[in-house]
Structure formats: structure tokens, C-alpha cells
Design a protein around this nucleic acid. Structure first.
Lengths: 202, 202
DNA sequence: ATGACTTCTGTCACACTGTGACAGGAAGGT
DNA sequence: ACCTTCCTGTCACAGTGTGACAGAAGTCAT
């Protein structure tokens, strides 16, 4: 990896960290792109070359999550029931979080605190999730040997899976520590599996 | 109802209709608030007094839908399983649509076409839905005699119900007529009820 | 109707987000 | 060193959204 790419990644993370800290200090809305750019000695124009919008700062982790979901789905045995495979994919996301460096974990926890304080951003985050759902629906439809456009069940399977994820992430919160989050998530997965009729997602 | 209120409602709808038509003609992004305001002989500043944002134009029907959902939930017998009650609430939304005036139906269908062409707006719509979910979760938790903050199952019930609704509305589409939409919705509800274990939402 | 009173509207001014175009500088390969 | 490519800052700009204020229109007395 060349110097150019390393430098790029460095500024990317510098912008991200500066922004997260500013958001926690003064709130999301009250923080301007100019301030964030200023904090890392970069022009506002450059900020938008790294993050397409201010919201994208908060949604960056979604790109990461989606990648893991899709990779895991591809790796699971094709004859496994789709919902089961999706639950494994969720667990893979958690595993990735636990294997991450302290810095990355810190970033994630800061982000969660910001989301707690800004319901609007939670909405944006969910909105971003619809794209992921669309892609996952394609994968699930392929597994089930149907066309995604014409099959409601494939969409329902994915929608239920993502609901399970969101419930695990969003509620209920107390200290917001990492083990708590993974614990809630595990609970949520268990709850969902217990609620669904065996073989519903064939 | 006084002249003032009638006039207000009239301009509100005038703005809405003008906007929907412009969106269909030239696309959502390419249409400016200035154009919309101009089409109804109103200052841009006034536009923002009727709709807090350009996006809000497309989300207005959500406010209406949420109201019906909450009202129906309040009217359902308290000992009815929450998910069943939520499915009745969805059907109440459909019934409201079918009872609506031709104008209102036309508005709804235009909106759907706009959503089809602008995935970003679908995302916004889903984002708006998270607020509804939060409120419904409170209602469901109250029914189940628990606190919403501390109960994942209440959230999961609502999340599953809203997933069912979204799947019914969003996929799959062909002519986009009203009977088709209500049909898809009914299918989706049936599919969800068949997928869940009896008594899972006690 | 005339008055006072409330509410709505337009104008002006402004902050902020996001984008296109261009020029200079840093990194890559030869 | 040289040329190419990519990155960055500057400038200019369109568009969204908001606060403040003055005037117009609706409301409700007498």
C-alpha cells in the first residue's frame, strides 16, 4: 500500500474521530462541517471528498456491517434455511466487533452514544438499512430459487432478520458497554427464533 | 370552521398537489421549493410554514397513517394478542384508503409512483416510521403490562408488524393500482401470520 | 361599519450543506 | 529529472431552511 493511500486512510479516520468528538461535545446539529474540517486542518471542500455528507459520517459503519452480512451469507451452506443463515450473519457482525482494535471499539461506542442523543440519526441509519435489505433480499431469493421481484416471503425473511438486529441494537440500554450490546443482541436473536414457526422460511 | 382555516387547508392541498405533479414531471431532486411555491403563487417562505421541509411533502401521509394505527390499537380489545391487534390496524389503514375520495386516492397513487422513482425517499419514509414504531411499542408494552424500555419482545412485535406492512407496500409492483396494493398487503399479512408461532406475542 | 386583536403572509437577511470548475502541489512510475 | 496521476484548496454557486419584522387579511367586539 502506497504512501498516498495510507495518508488518505489517516485523514479519513482523523476527520471521523474529530467529528465524533465534536458531536459528543456540542451536539450533532450544532456542529458544522467547517468546524470539523478546521479541527483536522482541512478545507470543507475536502471533507466532502471523504464523506459525501455530514450524515454519512454516522452511517459509515453501515457499509462495514453490510459487507460482513453479505460475505457471511455467501459463505453459509446453500441449503441452510435463509433466516438461520441471516442470524449467523448477525453473529458474525458481533464477532467482528469483539475482534476489533480498542480504537475501533471506542469509535463504535461513541457512535452509539451519538445515536442515542439524536433520534433523527437513528432514522437515517434505518433508512440506509433499506438498501442493505434490498441486497440481502436478492441473496435470499437466489437461495430459495425464486425471483426477488416476485416473492414477498424473501423480503419478509430479510425484513424480520433486520428487525431482529435493530431491536438488539437499539433497546433497551443502560450503560451502553460492549458486552451489554452483544448480550442484548444475542437475546434478541434467541427471541426471534423462538417466535417463528419451524420451517417458515424454506 | 372559519374562513381562515378553510383557506389554510386549501393552500396546503394546493401546495401538495402542485408539488406531486412537478415531482412526476421533472423528478424530485430537480424540482425546487421556489418552483413549487411559484406554481401556487406563494412565497417560498410560506411553503416552509406549511411543510417543514421538502421531504415532509412526501411524508405527510405517514402522519395520517400513524393516527389510524394508534386509534385502531386503542379501540381493539385489551386482551387481544398485540400482533393480531396490529394486523387489524394495518387493515384499518387499507379500509381508510378505500373509503377515501377519488382525489385522496389519486394523491396516494401519485405519491407511490414518486417513491418508486426515488429510493432515497423510501428511505426517508422508513426513517419516519421509526417514530411510529416507538409510539406503537409503548402501546404494546402497556397492553402486555411491561415497561417498553425494558422489554425487547414488545419492540420485536412492533418491528415485525411494521416489516409486514412495508413488505406489503413496497414489493412487488406491476401496475400500481389500488386493488393491487391492497391485495399485496393482504397477502403479506397472511404470510406473516402463517410464519409466526401461535401465542408468540402474549 | 369601525375599531382593536389575532393570525397569516411576504420581504429581507442569513447560516449551512453540497457541488462543479479550475489551478497548483504532492506522489507514482520511468 | 520528467511526465502522469491523483489529491487538495480556492472560488463561485444553487438550494434548503430559519429568524425578524412589517404589513395585509381574517376575527370579533361594539
Amino acid at each position: 500500500m502506497g504512501l498516498r493511500e495510507r495518508k488518505k486512510e489517516k485523514t479519513r479516520l482523523a476527520i471521523l474521530d474529530a467529528a465524533l468528538d465534536l458531536f459528543l461535545e456540542q451536539g450533532y446539529e450544532s456542529t458544522t462541517v467547517e468546524q470539523i474540517a478546521g479541527a483536522v486542518e482541512v478545507s470543507p471542500r475536502t471533507f466532502f471528498r471523504y464523506f459525501t455528507s455530514k450524515d454519512h459520517l454516522v452511517l459509515w459503519f453501515h457499509d462495514q456491517g453490510e459487507e460482513i452480512l453479505l460475505e457471511t451469507m455467501a459463505a453459509r451452506p446453500p441449503d441452510e434455511p435463509p433466516f438461520t443463515a441471516l442470524m449467523y450473519a448477525l453473529r458474525a457482525m458481533l464477532a467482528d466487533l469483539e475482534d476489533a482494535t480498542p480504537q475501533e471499539r471506542e469509535r463504535f461506542l461513541k457512535l452509539r452514544r451519538i445515536l442515542d442523543e439524536n433520534p433523527r440519526l437513528v432514522g437515517q441509519s434505518v433508512a440506509r438499512g433499506t438498501e442493505t435489505e434490498r441486497r440481502l433480499a436478492e441473496v435470499v431469493a437466489a437461495r430459495r430459487g425464486v425471483k426477488a421481484d416476485a416473492d414477498q416471503l424473501s423480503h419478509l425473511i430479510v425484513a424480520f432478520a433486520m428487525s431482529t438486529m435493530r431491536v438488539g441494537f437499539e433497546c433497551p440500554r443502560s450503560d451502553g458497554s460492549l458486552p451489554e450490546i452483544t448480550g442484548r443482541m444475542a437475546e434478541s436473536i434467541e427471541l426471534a427464533e423462538r417466535s417463528l414457526r419451524p420451517g417458515w422460511d424454506v
